[in-house]
């Protein structure tokens, strides 16, 4: 099942990546090369197998650890915004968003 140039455009848009025509062409070849080795995986019968999303659950049941509802963080705005591209009055600035 090969990807089409339209697939590459759609995915690049979803991922917010601008790709030049040359990059798109190369990406198409490389992705199709990769999905070639994926086919063997799709063929395996995995019926009844529980997906493993957190590795240690292969060892024992893993459950989410919960934090007490306490405020532990203060105002670190200056340090937190040190590497911000555009800030004014403490707000991060972006091109106008139309709703």
């Amino acid at each position: 099942m090969a990807l089409t140039p339209q697939d590459v455009n759609r995915i690049a848009h979803l991922a917010r990546l601008e790709l030049s025509a040359a990059e798109q062409a190369q990406m198409l070849d490389q992705l199709n090369g990769f999905f070639g080795i994926v086919e063997q995986m799709r063929a395996v019968d995995t019926r009844g197998v529980e997906p493993l999303s957190t590795p240690l659950s292969a060892l024992h049941p893993v459950q989410l650890r919960l934090r007490d509802d306490l405020v532990t963080e203060g105002n670190d705005r200056p340090a937190n915004q040190k590497s911000a591209p555009a800030v004014e009055g403490g707000l991060f600035l972006v091109p106008r968003v139309i709703e």
């Binding site: 979803l14 395996v44 995995t46 997906p51 493993l52 999303s53």
Partner: peptide, 27 residues
């Protein structure tokens, strides 16, 4: 690109979910 594609609508089960199941079998 690979990750966005395998999670995108209509492909999740065939790729990501299948991979997670094989991950269990490998473990």
């Amino acid at each position: 690109m690979i990750g966005t594609y395998v999670l995108s609508h209509g492909y999740y089960d065939a790729y990501y979910l299948q991979a997670q199941k094989l991950r269990r079998m490998i473990a």
